[in-house]
Design a protein around this nucleic acid. Sequence first.
DNA 1: AAACCTTCCAACCGCGTAGTC
DNA 2: TGACTACGCGGTTGGAAGGTT
Length: 550
Amino acid sequence: MKSKSEEKMISKNSVDDSPYVEEGNSGGNVGGNGPLKKGPWTSTEDAILIDYVTKHGEGNWNAVQKCSGLARCGKSCRLRWANHLRPDLKKGAFTLEEERRIIELHVKMGNKWARMAAELPGRTDNEIKNYWNTRIKRRQRAGLPIYPPDICTQALNDNQHHENMDNFSSGDIQQSDFLSMNVFEIPQFNGMELNQQLYTPALLDIPASSLLDIPASSLLVEGLDSSYPSKSLLCTMHPSKDPRGPESMFYGVNAPIGGVLQGSSQYPNDGSMRIVQSFGFSAVYDHDSTSNHALSSSLIPGSHAIMNGNPSSSEPDWAMKLELPSLQTQMGSWGSPYSPLPSLESVDTLIQSPLTELTQSCSLSPRNSGLLDAVLYESQMKKNSKNSCQLTSPASTMPVDVLHTSSHELHEMEWEVYGDPISPFGHSSSSVFSEYTHMSGNSVDEPPSAETMPDCTYVIPALFEGFKVKEAEAGTEKQIIFSRPDFLLASSCSGLYKDPTKDYSLLKDAFGPFLGDDLGKDCKQIDTSASSSGQGREHDSYACNAVSTA
DNA sequence: AAACCTTCCAACCGCGTAGTC
DNA sequence: TGACTACGCGGTTGGAAGGTT
């Protein structure tokens, strides 16, 4: 097996018919004893490396080549040892328990594979990463949420718990407690961002990923206690490395959001922190909607922000370097300038805006209780009023003045911004929306996939979290009401699926380690006749509001 | 049977960080 | 303080294998 692939690799990497020769030396692959080999390892090489490590121990990998004559760079040696030769490695597929653990860890840590691996003895970061990416892809295809029902349930429980909390941002909650309480918070639907259509295309320049890969817990903690060393966030944002300073984190942002974002400059010394603090966690913490317009849903770990695949030229380099998972690449499919799919950046923009700004200038929608029933109600109302959403409006380039369009119009076009049944932070949002567009024949970049969400529609109780964004410069207020996708998952997992006759294989697959054989009892997919035809999916349950008030 | 597609996974690459000088 | 080095991490790539059409 290996020999075959090896030969291919050798052939591929060969230079002048010299196998085992590496033509490049990037990444410190310069060898002192000649060219370094790349590609699959042979058993002989493995033996050499094992022998070396046995004698000299781990570390000093660059010395391997010198001491053993192994034509491999230190980097490669380390990787080989860590991922394959280490004696304590656990081989074989992940157990259900391990899978569950991975998911839990991902909720907490995001794409911190090494940290996750540390929690899973015998497993490597690469292994976990591959597993996760595969899982994401699979669920994306299936149109399923990343996080399983029980976690959803826990998230809801936590939500209810926190709804009764006051001053959650006062920092009186211990980090550990907070973390423990939010371990299962579903950062689902980070894609509940504001409709990009509501904002100028420049908003797309905002590196949503900078926040979306941050574990929910980290952000939440940040929001609670600024003393928490939110390395994840800081590192992700790289604010200190941005020569433009904190405000530049919103580089590319302009009106109307720009006014809001500019508020970030209020915290010149700790932009990211402030931003975190400004995050809303309403899903979980909108116990006090007047003071804490949290957007918990935005706090999705591992969210590979859907950058809408539109790496604008104006996007800062650092933004592009932010944690962009491979999935994001896939998401790029809806990055077309004309894609009706939403941009996380837009929501992130608001999310990133200082809380104080929001709290001071915002008055939540009266319907904005954040309670599930309220959301359900609203969703139902929308459903009744509109049975179909016009998702395909090529209005992704809609100018700012769309904000002044009627709320009705906005409703129709906005649902697409939300729902991301797959990923909490939005990477999946792309999947759902892209899938929708596929079904409706509106995909710009990809052909409809019969495989994607076949006859499957989630009934999503859209929660509407509204807040007003004060447009500092214009002196106007724009109330942006957006749904609470984070609840969508939970609801979708807790019996909101309507059609019991549908095949639950997808869900079963998705919830594998979390559900028993009676999966179908709890999770059902909805079949809408419209969905099969790609028209009029009952996505209006995703409905969202965008009310613009001059 | 062949072509195509999907999944899995090993390996590579670039970058960030810590340590050292 | 800056340059250099080693190491680690996360994202990405590409081939093998298996499945589907």
